[in-house]
Amino acid sequence: MKALIKDIMAPAVCVIQKFRKETQDTFTLELSPPEEGFSFSPGQFNMLYMYGIGEVPISISGDPADTGRIIHTIRAYGAVTSRMMTLKKQEMIGVRGPFGTHWPIEDLVGRDILLVAGGIGIAPLRPVLFHILSNRTRYGKVLLLYGERTPGDLIFRNQIESWRGRFDLELEVTVDSAREGWRGNVGVVTTLMPRIVLDPSNTAAMLCGPEIMMHYTIQELTKKGLRDDQIYISMERNMRCGIGLCGHCQLGPTFVCKDGPVFLLSKVRHLFRKREL
């Protein structure tokens, strides 16, 4: 059923149940959903309204099986997100959504899964991991590569450490720079590529991060024999309405908010990295 913009433009007011600071500029909000509950698919986003400041699209970073909470992990980049960082438990925030396309996890049952996250791009990929780990036997080999600026910027650090202990998940973290004592990798995320072993015939890759990072990752994946129709990317553009009406997020013929943010690379290959498109 089609939703009406009239209702969709008015945010539901949600109470913050938990505020957790992840790093110096990143935090996680746990919201109690409106009465009717909240369900989403991994990769989708909500429009979050900070009272009196404005609204921004933020991907959902929680477990899709958990309909009792709405979880967002946010990096304070602009006016709205910086103000959100000062929110406290029991304060409220406006939520519209969920919007957009999702990582096609249901279609990828039986496949090997490669997740490549850059920076805050780990947030929209975390729901995929939650889903896969709760349905572990339905997927083949699972590998997560996560690149960040420094060890101090790593998000979900505890969770990643506990995931590292699992035998059914390969995980590599790399940072751009580190001080002595960091035992992980240093170098951009693409430098991990030559070391990983993929079965190109059975792997599906999901990429989320800055466009440059996805661009070079795609080149490495191509070298490894993956085709564009095995690679999913998540795009970012200016979004105001979230429902394909305001026109801001256009990427050629697509509306990133409605036809994306998750795209099969082969569908948008001609649009990706086209300058000033």
Binding site: R179, E180, R195
Partner: peptide, 23 residues
Amino acid sequence: GKVCVEIFAAQRGSLVIQTLGPG
């Protein structure tokens, strides 16, 4: 194994520039 390439900066200690592994 794993090797790190570092540069030493007086106040900041050793800064890791890159890590290298098998291959």
